[in-house]
Design a protein around this nucleic acid. Structure first.
Lengths: 150, 150
DNA sequence: TTCAAAATGGATATTATTTATTATTTAACA
DNA sequence: TGTTAAATAATAAATAATATCCATTTTGAA
């Protein structure tokens, strides 16, 4: 199995501490952070890291296929180092993004699905993303509490 | 069947020419326009229409459930008056958004799907969106195709 | 027809995100 | 180790999307 360093070097992309740090943050978390969140998470260990570097780094990592980009309708984009097929659920109240692990992108047999869509639309499709939108458990409770209380 | 006017009046939302015009544009097109595109389309017939009104109108129409909002990773949002379950394919070169009619959101038996996701994640899910990303037929043929925005 | 509440137009403000700039530093490799 | 192209930091600036303001107009219903 290739290491991240090997993957980058194979594409003539330099391995830098900043790139490793951004990737490492994404690999560790399941919070699907945006650029600003990555910036804040890195600050303690890399106080000199520039926001611009993070923008460039997520671009690089995305192009190389090491991370995926999520668009949930906020201003910016979210990033995820989990690249095997899975879908996401977005809380419209607090903005949290969670993985939907079991279901159902893997059951859609992606390759077959891409073929079908290509046949119907003529598009050469490379990425599938399934999103669910709703209210997370915490926000559901808060609203109930608020409604009952005050 | 309820008319749009009836749906709005039932929710105590005033029926205005601007709202009808925005809805009508969305109903007629399959181009999934964003606010700016709607604005441009309306200009010939409604030269006095304000951008602010369009922002407010798509909000109203979305809340009432007459249109859906799509987020494909651009700056802004796209709108679609087709609200029965269907998915979308986005051309990463020219920015075009097309419907994927036949497949596969209807085959996912949405209600059952929402239940499963709720069981797994605890989220109270109300919306499902399936996106495909790739290259449209025109952009596949024309290698000289300009990047979006050009 | 009248009237109050709601909506609109037009402009501007706001705000968040992203890109550009440039001097400096660093990774890769001979 | 030296060289060079690439990357980074720091900051400025552009971009762009959306919200706000308020005077005027319009809708809905009494």
């Amino acid at each position: 199995m290739q290491t991240i360093e090997e993957i980058l070097r194979a594409k003539k992309i330099k391995v830098t501490p900043q790139r490793m740090a951004v990737y490492s943050i994404l690999k560790k978390t399941d919070s699907h952070p945006n650029v600003e969140m990555i910036y804040q998470k890195l600050k303690p260990d890399y106080p000199a890291m520039s926001l611009a570097t993070i923008y460039k780094t997520v671009d690089v990592l995305k192009k190389v296929g090491l991370i995926q980009e999520l668009s949930v309708g906020e201003g910016g984009l979210r990033y995820d180092a989990k690249i095997r097929p899975h879908s996401h659920v977005y809380c419209e109240i607090c903005g949290k993004v969670d993985d939907v692990e079991q279901y159902p992108l893997n059951e859609l047999q992606d390759r077959f699905l891409l073929e079908k869509v290509k046949n119907e639309t003529g598009y050469d499709v490379s990425i599938v993303q399934l999103y669910f939108f709703g209210k997370c458990p915490q926000c559901s409770i808060n609203k109930e509490t608020k409604a009952r209380g005050a």
